[in-house]
């Protein structure tokens, strides 16, 4: 078995346990497990991630010896050779542990959006311990529980982190979906709902210098809208393109949403792709993956592709990228 277990012991005696694959370092493994320890360079130079191994053998990767105090290790370069126990020089309260918060919210509004979708807005209920802030990375989702049941469904947030406790979702009503049935038949404004989140790793890599292309199908537009709003709020200047695919024109995102995005991100190019359009359709005719293919033909530069939509769309994109065999990077979320 090439996986080792790491036990971190804080100064006040709390134990945090997580697995660490062979050749992986303790810092990366702890982050994967949701424990964020102080770190800056991640390459054995700054000395910030120092700690003491009290049990177990390990190998130290390349590091600056001046950053290392006698008898200690740098967690970003410490690769366990067997199960490891590590004493941390700080208390449990100081480990940034990512616990997925569970909160109460109420339904503030439910409006029909396009074609079978509902724009649902929830408001967090005041909570003295957790406050009213909605904190997440654009692209992440929340799990909503159907009241009176244990049934949870995940939906991406469509708005931005905010201080007003506001959560916006774009939910497609599936004919037999349980949450859809709840929304259609039971839910009303003022109802309480338990929300759990944020979670998910469909998030922007803002350190990348590449142009970005967002590809959305159906309600896959929700997290993408959140990301685009975020880039707009931060006046991001990187070349950006949005492809939105639908079967018919009537299923396209409303023009007003597109205009809001282009106003905030003036450099953005938008392709609306419709696979079975009316006769006088001026835009791209074909699927979202076909539109992506056409977009890739225009550039030699490797790009970051953020895609969210139904499985069929994502599979087509994967095949397309394999065929093209370029240096592009796909960051995807399946609906």
């Amino acid at each position: 078995m090439s996986e080792r277990e790491v036990t971190l012991v804080t100064r006040d005696g709390a134990e945090l346990r997580f697995p660490c694959a062979a050749k992986d370092n303790v810092l990366a493994a702890s982050e994967a497990a949701g424990y964020f320890l102080p770190a800056m360079c991640h390459e054995g130079t700054c000395g910030l991630c120092h700690a003491r191994v009290t049990e177990g053998k390990y190998t130290m990767g390349p590091h600056n010896s001046a950053a290392l105090q006698g008898g200690e290790v740098l967690l970003c370069r410490c690769e366990p050779d067997e199960n490891l126990t590590v004493a941390l020089p700080y208390n449990q309260a100081q480990v940034l542990r990512y616990k997925v918060p569970v909160r109460q919210a109420v339904i503030e509004s439910m409006e029909p959006a396009w074609q079978n979708a509902v724009a649902l807005t929830l408001r967090l209920q005041p909570d003295p311990e957790q406050g009213q802030a909605v904190e997440f990375s654009p692209g992440q989702y929340m799990e909503l529980t159907i009241p009176g049941t244990d049934i949870r469904r995940a939906y991406s947030l469509a708005n931005l982190p905010n201080w007003e406790g506001r959560l916006d979702f774009l939910i497609r009503l599936a004919p037999h979906g349980q949450f859809s049935t709840f929304l259609r038949e039971q839910a009303k404004v003022g109802d309480a709902i338990t929300v759990r989140g944020p979670s998910g790793s469909f998030i922007l890599d803002e350190s990348s210098v590449r142009p970005r292309c967002f590809v959305g199908g159906g309600c896959g537009l929700a997290p993408i809208l959140s990301m685009l709003r975020h880039l707009g709020e931060f006046q991001d200047s990187q070349p950006t393109h949005l492809i939105f695919g639908a079967n018919r024109e009537s299923e396209l995102v409303p023009q007003s949403d597109v205009e809001a995005v282009t106003a905030a991100l003036p450099q953005i190019g938008v392709t609306l792709a419709v696979s079975a359009p009316e006769e006088n359709w001026q835009g791209f005719q074909g699927t979202a993956p076909a539109a992506l293919d056409a977009f890739l033909s225009q550039t030699d530069e490797p790009i970051d592709i953020y895609a969210c939509g139904p499985p069929k769309m994502l599979e087509a994109i994967e095949i397309l990228l394999q065929q093209r065999n370029r240096d592009d990077r796909l960051i995807a979320e399946r609906l």
């Binding site: 964020f36 770190a39 800056m40 940034l96 904190e135 990375s137």
Partner: peptide, 28 residues
């Protein structure tokens, strides 16, 4: 990173020295 994560309110950085904001407080 330790101190900001444990601070229960917004943080304003007016000049140096900033280091990578951890996810725990990046939004505030």
């Amino acid at each position: 990173q330790l101190e900001f994560a444990a601070f229960p309110g917004p943080i304003v950085m007016t000049s140096n020295c900033l280091i990578e904001p951890q996810p725990a407080y990046r939004n505030r």
